[in-house]
Design a binder for these strands. Structure first.
Length: 260
DNA sequence: ATGGCCGACTCGGTCGGA
């Protein structure tokens, strides 16, 4: 199956690119973050016209997560929000069952400034995320914007980010703790040595200079075979792109899972 | 020269993003 995660930085602003993506890549599951819209603003009809249904946890003007599946795909056991997350009003986690696969779409807080209350909340959110992983059964995929560059190989210049959020040891320890629950960072599993990014700042021609970070990820339980996992850079180009590129994984579920 | 871009909210200028 083809599973994609994409921080779209406003679903309303990004709909033309989302529709283009659905037509070009026909994902079986598309996890979205930063949809930035209310329940009433969800573009159900436009997505339906592209053959997809959206299951969303809409939030305030800055968050919101969703999962898109083909319109004929059943979706079960939708759950929004993490037990014990620090700011339950922020829409940063949705989990659904697609066949026998459990899928989570996550938008980890940015953290803003090291040592700030929002930074502490980011760490607490990552702790709550790990706790939820331990409760979910495999096969499981959690995909989204983790707002952590796991190692120095995931930033274009470690010196630029020295002491900044996304690269601090407490953040990296917590990302590592997510993997210690048994999940595999799909991109790193198939691309152990490359330096590639999923996010580039809009400013200063960062994308053109390839000054980015790898902060989006697909994490999968080890019973799932990762055939490939790659960054769809074309969708960071062109008209009104998000500042994140989609991350696309081809996954083979274990025997008996998600038949049909 | 220490910002450059973008979107939401709202209709001018902040705030947040990473």
């Amino acid at each position: 199956m083809r599973l994609v995660t994409w921080n779209v930085n406003s679903l309303r602003a990004r709909m033309p690119r989302v529709v283009e993506f659905l037509e070009a890549h026909a994902p079986d599951v598309l996890c979205l973050q930063e949809i930035k819209c209310s329940e009433e603003q969800l573009p159900h009809l436009d997505l339906q016209a592209s053959g997809y249904r959206v299951v969303a946890y809409p939030g305030g003007p800055r968050e919101g997560v969703a999962v898109l599946v083909p319109a004929d795909q059943e979706v079960g056991n939708v759950r929004c929000g993490l037990p014990d997350e620090p700011d339950p009003g922020e829409a940063r986690w949705i989990e659904v069952e697609v066949g026998d696969l459990t899928v989570g779409s996550v938008y980890v807080p940015n953290g803003r400034e090291v040592g700030s209350p929002t930074y502490e909340a980011k760490l607490a959110f990552l702790d709550a995320l790990r706790a939820r992983f331990a409760e979910l059964s495999s096969p499981l995929v959690v995909a989204g914007d983790f707002n952590v560059a796991p190692t120095d190989a995931d930033v274009w210049d470690p010196d630029v980010f020295d002491g900044a959020t996304h690269v601090t040891e407490p953040e990296r320890e917590r990302f590592g703790a997510l993997l210690e629950t048994g999940l595999v960072d799909a991109f790193r599993a198939v691309e152990p040595d490359t330096r590639q990014f999923t996010w580039w700042d809009y400013r200063g021609g960062s994308f053109h200079k390839n000054e980015g970070m790898r902060i989006d990820a697909v994490l999968a339980t080890p019973d799932i075979d990762v055939g490939s996992c790659g960054i769809v850079r074309d969708f960071r180009k062109g008209k009104k792109p998000s500042d994140h590129a989609p991350l696309l994984a081809e996954l083979a579920l274990p025997e008996g899972a998600n038949r049909g």
